[in-house]
Nucleic acid binder design. Sequence first.
DNA 1: TTTTACAGGACCGGCTCGGTCCCCTAAAGT
DNA 2: ACTTTAGGGGACCGAGCCGGTCCTGTAAAA
Lengths: 161, 161
Amino acid sequence: MIRMSKLTDYGIVLLAQLAVRDASVPHTARELAADTRLPLPVVSKLLKALAREGLLASHRGAKGGYSLARDPATLSVAHVIAILEGPIALTECGAHPGLCVQERDCRVRAPWQRINEVIQGALARVTLAELIETATPRVDALATLPFPAPEAAPCAPERAR
Amino acid sequence: MIRMSKLTDYGIVLLAQLAVRDASVPHTARELAADTRLPLPVVSKLLKALAREGLLASHRGAKGGYSLARDPATLSVAHVIAILEGPIALTECGAHPGLCVQERDCRVRAPWQRINEVIQGALARVTLAELIETATPRVDALATLPFPAPEAAPCAPERAR
DNA sequence: TTTTACAGGACCGGCTCGGTCCCCTAAAGT
DNA sequence: ACTTTAGGGGACCGAGCCGGTCCTGTAAAA
């Protein structure tokens, strides 16, 4: 359903949790698992990946744990997603060009690319810092959207398939 | 990778194909399969679903086939996606509230909802008619984006995981 | 030198996705 | 009427990925 994987979601939750905690001391996987009520092995795996990718700094041994490697204000959601689950693209051809038989002369390819850019852009403009602001910021920003509004979308169905 | 399913992608391609062809006569699944180079059974299944959902009009029997049930200019991509793969939501809790243990007191829930709305909005503003315009329209529209730009996203990695 | 905690794997069951097949019914043509 | 065309609605199925577990290192602190 145009979902990102749960793992990625968890990863962001973990980063948010770290951003909220005392930054001067590392936090263990166990701790974060408890905070977020996620299974420890999963948390562990995620933290390792995030550390490997440079988003977290890891500290081994007793009194070890993980801490944010950068300012939450400079870390975009898009970045995290890209790291955790690869390039952001709704369509196959967006992520891995050259696999689709009809890529040449596909009538809808170009517009999809643009849609992808829009989504990528939207995600790139949200920082970890913003995610953890409790007050919902700037609701009016939603009013401004790219693409013209043809008739304000009569499209809010439920389930399907 | 924040993908929609191939089926959905195909569905949109099929709609686009129909929008491009002569609207005064129905087109068969076989025809459309040939046009799009997609396997016939898949095309068939998709067309059935789209017809059932009211996006296409179906005509049985000899000289039968499918035709668009509405003006391409009034059909949003978001609508098609919603029909073909359910509610648009990046996170589980967006589509099916009440399943996540940490939904209460989840620190990042609200912002995600807003991100979902942005994406939903972006998709809602693209019509089938726009998808098939060959000339790429309005590149400058991308400049205007919701959410502030913290540092214009240094995040275009490749692969991962 | 013992304990704590990360590093890096392998591994695995289940579910969904992409794809196929089959039998039925409706509409045209003859 | 009967045959042909083409959609309607299923069931079905294999492969792949996803979410989750586990185990064996190794580094750092006490």
